[in-house]
Each structure stands twice: as C-alpha cells, then as structure tokens.
Amino acid sequence: MEQLFFIIFASIAVASAISVVSLRNPVHSALFLIVCFFNVAALFILLRSPFLAAVQIFIYVGAVMVLFLFAVLVLNLGKSEFSEPIFHRGPWSIALLLGLFVEIIFLILTGPLIATKDIYTEGAMIKNTEIMGELLYTRYIFPFEVVSILLLVALIGATVLVMKDKGK
C-alpha cells in the first residue's frame, strides 16, 4: 500500500519536474514547480516527517513560489524571452548528466549502508514535532542562531541589491 502511494507521488513529482525544465513560459514552470513541491511534501509524510511536510508547503509553496511568480509578473517579460533555444549546449550537458546518472545509480545499487542506527524508531517518531523542537533548541542551538543571522544578512542584501539609488 505504501509502495503504491510512493509510486503515485514520485511519478507526479518527476513528471512535474520535467515540465518545469521543458516549458517555455516561466509562469507555467512555476505552477508545475508548485505541484512538484506538494508531491515532495507528500513523500515527507510517507517518511514519517509531517512537520517537514508542513514546513515544505508553508515555505516553498507559500513563500518561495509566490516570490517567483511575483518576480515574473513584475519583470513583465516580452514574448521574445520565451523563444530561447532549449537545447543550447545539448551534447556536452547530456553527456555530463548521463555520466553522473550512471555513476550514482551504480553507487546506490552496490554501495553498502554501514552507518549505525540511532534511537528514533518509528514508535518514538510519533512525537515528531516535539522531538524536533527540543533538538533545535538544545543540541542544534548554535546552527539555529547562525541561520537567523544568515536570514538577516539575506534580508539586508536583497534590499540593498534592488535599491535604485545606491546613495553615493
């Protein structure tokens, strides 16, 4: 049963990902990217991480994609921007991609998994969000603070970058 749901979500995610990179109109790409994000969120639920699924939908669909659509609308692209050739440096890129693909498939299928298991079994993961919050505020408090500073820097950086008059 779980496998059936995995196949449904995975195939929709892959199909919408292909649409994202192959469609000409950026708005259509953005809408397919939203479909892909929803399916990845569903996969997170299959992996017993409902908190991450919620965060994925809030941040990616709610914030990131709205920002993307907003940027596309603000830039007011002409039709000429949609007529770029898609296969620009085709042969080299596809050779590189195929090489990478074969290499990683080989590693996935033959590589042994030697890491030891931790204590968070499926039973313990029922309190998923609670465990996560506790860890974020105890063991991972330093990266948590660093990330907050990074967000502040990104906020200031984005504002400075789009200012018209740099105040010479």
């Binding site: 991450l52 941040i59 990616y60 993307f68 931790d118």
Partner: peptide, 22 residues
C-alpha cells in the same frame, strides 16, 4: 537510520533555500 540529524538538517536547508531565493 532512525536518526533525527537529517530531518534537522532539512529544516536548515529549507531556510537557506528561502534566503537563496530572496
């Protein structure tokens, strides 16, 4: 692997992705 480290890492990745998009 029944671990929490990867899930915590994903929270940070999503934060970095949001900053990167901005």
């Amino acid at each position: 692997l029944q671990s929490m480290t990867g899930r915590i890492f994903v929270v940070f990745t999503i934060t970095i992705a949001a900053a990167e998009v901005a």
